[in-house]
Structures are given as structure tokens and as C-alpha cells.
Design a protein around this nucleic acid. Structure first.
Lengths: 122, 122
DNA sequence: GATACATATTCCTTTGCGGGAATATATATC
DNA sequence: GATATATATTCCCGCAAAGGAATATGTATC
């Protein structure tokens, strides 16, 4: 993977937030919307951008699209994602995103759950 | 230093090449021109871009402007420059730049040299 | 098959950036 | 001070990308 392409993906705030969240595990679009508090079209387009360049992978689960980091990242990508994760810890916006993600996961019920769950995408 | 600003500086090929060269030490504009083989205006403008965002520092020496990486880089910048330097080793264009830099340094005579030097900027 | 939900895509506008030609500025040399 | 050299800046153009409204697509449910 070409180094420049990686940095082109990293030079937008929304995409940085997305990748920071994905460092914790897969996520669906609706959760990105909740955590980032950005309109659906914005999230979708940045995810498409990242996908077209191989920074994320997608898998459909029912109505939901689950995004995650590549299973076999290149050396350069792995290094840069690690660097991002490390640096993001020191910036408020990224920390807040991770906090919101943590709270969300507590109320997030898996697919096999019986009832009462507001979401069951991931 | 804001993380996004760093990545905005890294998302252009010319700037990546400049920063990769600077990881070896200070350089003047004319040397960038020779190594990168790009027009002067292009080099100057990217250096101005990097300077405005604190990624490089400048010092005038006679007719020449000597650019170098910040003396006291932030934690994020240091981490990302190290990552870049590491990854750049695996990409042809950056390796070739470093090779040209090495050859150049051999013929580059310091300021105190007596005569015959084609350059004495750095 | 009609409806609701989750997500993607299209169309449009605006903006910032990269590139180059020309010009300006600063310094050294004569 | 005239000239040459090194570098910066201005002006212009073209393009890609970001953002949003509206619409399309795919899936589950009834």
C-alpha cells in the first residue's frame, strides 16, 4: 500500500475519528452516527472513501453494514494506525469518542438477544 | 500540535519527500531542487506550507535558506516523523531521494572551503 | 407487495489546494 | 549602484474534495 494514499485518508477529521473508533473493533454506520453526531451522508461518504482505498473492510449483517479495519493490513498501514491510536489518546475529541463508544457498547445487544434492545447491529 | 494538522502536511508527495530528506539533516532550497528535480516555486511553496504549520524551521545563511525539522518537536510530530522515516525506507521514490542526497553531500563543500566548490550553502 | 429501516449514491455548490508564469525581495559581488 | 544568485510571493487556472438535499438501493417485517 502506497504511503501517500494512507496519509490522504488520514487528513480529514471525520476519517481520523472513524479510524480511531475502529481501532477498538468493528462498528456499523448507525453507531458512527451516534458517536460522532454527524449526518448519515457524511459518515457514509467517508466510509466509502476509506473503503475505496483499502483502509477499511465491510460486511453486511442484515440491514446493517459492519465496518472494520483490514484483516491483513500492510506494514505501513499497521504502523500508521498504531501511531494514530497512540497520538489520539492525547486529544480531547478522540478520547470523548472512545468514551461514548464505551457507554454505547453497554446497551448494545447482540443479534441473538430476545427483545427490548434498541439496536442489534453489532 | 494538533494531529490533523500533521496529517494535512503529510498528504502531499512533495512534502513527504521533503520531510524524508530532512530526517537526515538540514538542507537548503537549491538542494531540494536538485534532489527532487522539481521547479523552485513548487519547492518553495511546499516549504512555506510546512513552515506555516510548524513542521519545519528556517534559518538564513547568506543567500541561502536552510530548512530543518523543529528542534523541539511535539510528541505527536516525533512519532509521526519516525513512522514516516521507517515506512519511506520501503518505497522506491524515497530511497532514491536519499541516495541522491548521499551523493550530493560528497561534493558539497562547507562554507569555510577555499575554492572550486559549486555550492557552499550547507 | 407495502412499509419501515439502514445505508449508499447522485447532484449541486463551495472551497482549498496544487501547479506554473511572472514578479518581487534579499543578499553577495563587482 | 549595477548585476547575479537564491528564494519568496502574487496571480491565475483547474481540479478534487467536502458538505448537504434529495433520491435510490437493499433488507426485514407485516
Amino acid at each position: 500500500m502506497e504511503l501517500l494514499k494512507i496519509y490522504e485518508c488520514l487528513c480529514d477529521r471525520t476519517r481520523l475519528r472513524v479510524l480511531n473508533l475502529l481501532s477498538q473493533g468493528p462498528l456499523c454506520v448507525c453507531h458512527f452516527q451516534e458517536i460522532l453526531r454527524e449526518p448519515q451522508v457524511k459518515i457514509s461518504k467517508h466510509l466509502a472513501y476509506l473503503r475505496a482505498r483499502g483502509l477499511v473492510e465491510v460486511e453486511r449483517r442484515g440491514k446493517w453494514m459492519i465496518y472494520e479495519l483490514p484483516g491483513k493490513p500492510s506494514r505501513e498501514l499497521k504502523a500508521n494506525l498504531a501511531c494514530l491510536q497512540d497520538c489520539a489518546r492525547e486529544e480531547g475529541i478522540f478520547r470523548r469518542d472512545l468514551e461514548r463508544l464505551g457507554k454505547l457498547d453497554l446497551t448494545c445487544t447482540p443479534v441473538k438477544a430476545t427483545s427490548g434492545a434498541t439496536r442489534n447491529c453489532c
